[in-house]
């Protein structure tokens, strides 16, 4: 009985998510590339991580696997590109993922164009070129205006900002989440997600 209920909850969560994305995808066909007033074009991301927080047990494996995988074995929640916001007393656990925004505030804020769209790996994720980043944290400030805590994070030891790049197309947090809280949504036509569709979370 219990498993039935749980599966139903899972499916319901996913269906609702898909429903929302359905409308997004249809819009996406019209708007595969957003053009900004300054003439810069940003292709829509072709993958995004979705969260069903009702299943989350708050174990923080997502954070640890992210830091371990992406920061050369420096394990720390402060280096994780996925953030688990936990209210322990109310028992409210919220994994906060980078939405790979359609109109990414972080990307537009970068003064040295270190923030780019990853066409090479085909994920079209918004990524930071580590060699170009100067650690000014303008992207952190830009993201913070809409999403708290900021999804790009500052690596104090290396004086660089880091952010979610969908692990070259195979997000490790999704792979390691033991409860199936996270999943990847993919679309070759691009997904109209994050800002400006969602303006805060």
């Amino acid at each position: 009985m219990t498993t039935e209920v749980e599966r139903r909850t899972v499916l319901k969560g996913f269906t609702l998510g898909l429903f929302g994305l359905g409308s997004v995808a249809s819009l996406g066909s019209l708007l595969e590339v957003l053009t900004f007033p300054n003439g810069q074009k940003v292709a829509l991301a072709r993958g995004v991580i979705l969260v069903d927080k009702s299943l989350c047990s708050g174990c923080r494996i997502c954070e640890m696997v992210c830091a371990n995988f992406n920061s050369g074995g420096r394990n720390s929640a402060s280096l994780s590109r996925i953030l688990l916001e936990k209210d322990y007393l109310r028992g409210d656990y919220q994994p906060k993922v980078c939405h790979q925004c359609a109109d990414p505030p972080c990307l537009k804020a970068c003064p040295v164009t270190a923030l780019q769209v990853d066409r090479q790996k085909g994920t079209y994720a918004r990524v930071i070129d580590e060699r170009a980043c100067i650690g000014c944290q303008k992207c952190v400030e830009a993201c913070q205006q809409f999403f708290r805590p900021s999804r790009p994070r500052f690596d104090v030891q290396k004086h660089r900002t880091v952010k979610c790049h969908l692990c070259f197309g195979d997000p490790q947090c999704v792979k390691f989440c033991p409860l199936g809280v996270l999943r990847v949504e993919r679309s070759e036509r691009g997904l109209l997600v994050g800002y400006p569709v969602i303006k805060e979370d």
């Binding site: 047990s57 174990c59 923080r60 494996i61 640890m64 028992g91």
Partner: peptide, 10 residues
């Protein structure tokens, strides 16, 4: 709901 200690898959 199930609740995990740090880094516990169970």
């Amino acid at each position: 709901t199930p609740d995990g200690c740090f880094a516990c898959p169970v």
